[in-house]
Design a protein around this nucleic acid. Structure first.
Lengths: 222, 222
DNA sequence: AATAAAATTTAGACAAATCTAAAAAATAAA
DNA sequence: TTTATTTTTTAGATTTGTCTAAATTTTATT
């Protein structure tokens, strides 16, 4: 088994990874504000991470994760998201209350544990927020899964699941020509009632309610 | 939610609780050897635990957990044993490989998590080693256990717990087909070395040493 | 280009948990 | 009851991660 890093180091790696993904480049101040700490503390940690060969860093010149740092970060993210999935799917937590708990669970070190958990959960591809879960080799599936309420406007996506399986919703979706595999995009979101206007290729726009939108899951590549 | 204690403090509370249960009284050296640390470190921690009102302590005069310390210790034990149960029952771990992982998991702080886990597991009463799991109020199910040395001759009993949980003893017991729930009786006790001859139904007699006998707990109807 | 502002780093401190070596107290042995 | 031994505690150091305040470097602005 690989070396063990402290929770604090793991948290820095994860934060840097996320900021790198979003902004391409990361600054000391970014990390400090992301981690609710002081820039001086970040500098201290950058040196340690560099000494541990997880980070490329030249002072005043910026920094970024190297291959090893990225690998570690991905394993933390994998653990975080698998635990979130577990909390929601098995322990009936709401998707909005699992983050804090997963922040602790992600630092449990056993690799065997996380691989067994993955298996137990049926190798989920995305966490309850729709974020992809890296596999045990740290590979992403670049597909995000979200419900229609959270699909960005003009993002073409493919219907991948229906939450509520009642005959009623299926009838409704059938009538609007929405089925598994249908490719569609959101054209407009109405703040008034959270209803949504969709466009399916070669068809005229259709509108669905918030209630329906919540139960239609789609996936798309980033 | 109650105050949060560091993993280290929690480990000390747990160790002191265990030693208190076994020996009635606990010494600095006991704790040091149980925790693989130095007596000086134990003294340092005793002061901290006293300052936190988890321990009654007068220097050179000994120490013991107070009500609050016992309460915290029981919650850690509850968490440890529920996680062990989870690992064995849901993730298919062997009962001899879960201790280390549970040592980490027991420090996850969320009380809601552990209560949900308890529910998910069906409110188990004992962990995979046969040790009782305290409920969320810290109450034991007081199953009286005797070790094999104290089991009367010809009294049929059921294996309910293993004291030392090292991989070595578990391997030995496994080889002799002694596991939780095994029904057996003591056929002979040898005064010379306190070894014991056991009989398990439909099997030929096996002999175990005093050392092993001391660590195998059984329950039986009187 | 010179100066002002912002970002980053250093210097020095602190808290938690641990350690070693030495001192103090309690216990056991002569 | 002295003396010897063991147990426990203190004193002072170390490591990790954090902080504040000051210094340095970079960047933006006259």
């Amino acid at each position: 088994m690989g070396p063990k890093y402290s929770s604090s180091r793991e948290n820095y790696l994860k934060a840097i990874f996320h900021l790198q993904e979003i902004h391409g480049t990361v600054t000391t101040n970014d990390v400090a504000s992301e981690m609710q700490t002081r820039p001086a503390s970040v500098t201290d940690m950058l040196k340690k991470l560099k000494a541990q060969k997880l980070l490329l860093y030249e002072k005043y010149k910026g920094f970024k994760l190297n291959t090893e740092g990225r690998k570690v970060a991905l394993q933390i993210i994998r653990k975080h998201r698998l635990w979130e999935f577990f909390l929601v799917e098995k322990l009936r937590f709401g998707w909005d209350e699992v983050h804090e708990i997963a922040e602790e669970l992600e630092h449990i070190s056993s690799k065997k544990l996380i691989d067994r958990l993955d298996e137990f959960l049926g190798y989920p591809k995305t966490d309850p927020h729709g974020d992809p879960i890296p596999d045990s080799q740290g590979r992403w599936t670049l597909t995000r899964q979200v419900d229609l309420l959270n699909l960005p406007i003009n993002q073409i996506a493919e219907v991948s699941g229906i939450g509520d399986q009642s005959a009623e919703i299926l009838e409704l979706l059938n009538h609007k020509h929405i089925a598994l595999g249908t490719r569609l995009e959101v054209k407009k979101k109405f703040a008034f009632d959270n209803s949504i206007e969709l466009k399916i290729k070669n068809q005229s726009p259709v509108t669905i309610s918030e209630h329906v939108a919540k139960n239609v899951f789609v996936k798309y590549d980033e």
